[in-house]
Nucleic acid binder design. Structure first.
Lengths: 247, 247
DNA sequence: CAGTGGTCTAGACCACACC
DNA sequence: GTGTGGTCTAGACCACTGT
C-alpha cells in the first residue's frame, strides 16, 4: 500500500507551508521510485488523516503535483503517479543555467559591453523613447571548448549595474535578480536563419550553416521591459527542449 | 473604484464553478480594458462580499489569473492588473490550430498515409517493440497559398482511426481527442537544419535554406506514447512564439 | 498601527466512476 | 450503492507592507 505516507515528517513550526512540505515529500518519493509510476495513491481524505492535516491542505499539495504533471486525478477513480519521465522546461532561465545543469561547464566571453543609443527597432521592442540609452552586451557562450551561442542583449541603462567580471560568471538574469529586479514574464520567438560569414566563423560552423535564432523580451512585474535579447545558436550543438502539459 | 465587480452576474445553478465564472468575468474585464493595466483591485474580502462568495472561492478565481500572468499579488499591498499584453503560448496545439487563430485559413494536403513497420529509431522514440506497426502520415501544411510545413507523424496502429478526409480538416490532435485519447503532456525539441533539395522544393524555399525543425513525443495520461512527430518549417514564414512566467 | 494577502481548519454537499 | 475527487462555506490566525 502507501505506507510511504506515514513516513512523512511534518514540521508545523517551520515557515515552510504544510502543503509545500507534503508536496516535497511526495515529489521526492516519486523521484526516487518509492512511489512507482502508475501507483494508485490513497484517497485524499485518508492521506490528510494520516498526516493530521485538513483536506484542503492535502488537496493543495496534490494539486501542485498535478500542475507539475507528476500526478493524474480522476473523479470517482483516484490519484495515480504519472508514467513518463518528463521534467525539463524551457523556463525563464539563461542559457548559462541550462548548461550548468547538464554539467557542461560553460564559459562566457564578453565580446563587447557599451552604452549606446537604441536603434529604432530596438527602442520599439523595449518600448523606450527613440534614442534612449541602453547597454548593449555581446557575449559568446561556449561549452566543452566549442562555441555554442552568440548572445546580444540590450538593457535599459538605469535597470542594472553590469560588470564584465560578473557577467562572465553569473549570467544576466541571476545578476538582475540579485539587484532587486523582479522578473515576471517573457515573450520568446524561436526561428532559424542562415549564418552570416562572420557569425559562422564565430560559432565555428560551416559557411551558410543553419542557425537557431531566439529573440526574447523580458518584463518585470510592473510591465517594464527589463531586457531584450537576440541570440544565435549553433544548431549542430544546441536545441531547445520544451515539456508541456495539456489540461 | 472597482464598481466593475458589482456588474458581474453569477449563476449558482450553472454547472460552471463559481470561481471559474468570476475568473472569466475578471479576464474579460481585463481584456476589454474595463480593468486597465496597473489598476489596483479591491481586497479579496471585499470582492468576495460584493459577489456574495466565500473568500476561498474568490481567492481561487484570483489565483487562476495570477497563474495566467494577468494579475500580480503582493502581501500587504494588494492585487494589480499586469501591464503587458502577453497571451500566446506554444501549447500542445497543432499547427493547424495555431494558424486558424491567426486567421490564415490553412490548408492541408496529405502526401502519404500508410501502415509501416517502425524503424529502430522511431520505435525507440515511441517506446514500442522493434518492427511494431505504426501509421506514418506525411502532410504539407500551407497558408495563404504558400507551403509552411512538412509534417511527418507516427501513430501506433491501434491508437486512432485516421482518414485522409478528416485529417485535411481537423488536425491530428483534435481527431485523437474526439476518439477518446486523453492527452497529458508532450516533449518537444526545437532545432534548425539546412533543407535537403527535396524539402526545399516542397516548401518553396531556396536550395540550402535554413529550416526550423521540431520533434515531438506526446503522451496520454497512462504514459503511453500517443504520437511522434518530425516537422520541418519554412523559417522565412513561420516561427514559434512562447510566453512564459517566472514565479 | 491598519490593511493586505497567505495559510489552515472542519465541516458540507455534489458529480462522477465502478460494481 | 459505495467511494472518489470537485466545489463551497465561514470562520481563524499569521506575515508582510506601508503609515
Amino acid at each position: 500500500m502507501q505506507g510511504v505516507i506515514d513516513t512523512f515528517v511534518m514540521d508545523r513550526s517551520s515557515p515552510i507551508p504544510l502543503y509545500f512540505q507534503v508536496a516535497q515529500h511526495l515529489e521526492s518519493a516519486i523521484a526516487d521510485g518509492t512511489l512507482a509510476a502508475g501507483t494508485l495513491l490513497l484517497n485524499e481524505v485518508d492521506m490528510a488523516d494520516a498526516l493530521a492535516l485538513s483536506r484542503p491542505t492535502m488537496r493543495r499539495a496534490l494539486q501542485s503535483l498535478v500542475d507539475k504533471g507528476l500526478l493524474v486525478r480522476r473523479r470517482g477513480v483516484g490519484t495515480r503517479v504519472v508514467q513518463s519521465k518528463m521534467r525539463r522546461s524551457l523556463e525563464l532561465t539563461s542559457l548559462f543555467e541550462d548548461l550548468s545543469k547538464i554539467g557542461q561547464m560553460p564559459t562566457t566571453l564578453v565580446l563587447s559591453s557599451e552604452t549606446v543609443q537604441a536603434s529604432p527597432d530596438v527602442a520599439a521592442k523595449m518600448r523606450l523613447a527613440p534614442d534612449s540609452d541602453v547597454v548593449e552586451l555581446v557575449r559568446l557562450r561556449s561549452a566543452g571548448g566549442k562555441p555554442i551561442a552568440k548572445m546580444t542583449n540590450f538593457v535599459p541603462v538605469d535597470m542594472v549595474r553590469l560588470t564584465s567580471d560578473d557577467l562572465a560568471q553569473r549570467g544576466l538574469y541571476d545578476l538582475m535578480r540579485s539587484q532587486g529586479v523582479t522578473l515576471h514574464s517573457a515573450d520568446q520567438t524561436i526561428g532559424a536563419a542562415k549564418a552570416s560569414a562572420a557569425d559562422a566563423k564565430l560559432l565555428d560552423e560551416p559557411r551558410g550553416a543553419a542557425l537557431l535564432t531566439m529573440e526574447r523580451v523580458a518584463y518585470d512585474d510592473r510591465g517594464r521591459v527589463v531586457e531584450y535579447g537576440r541570440h544565435l545558436y549553433a544548431a549542430s550543438r544546441y536545441s531547445f527542449e520544451i515539456s508541456l502539459l495539456t489540461g
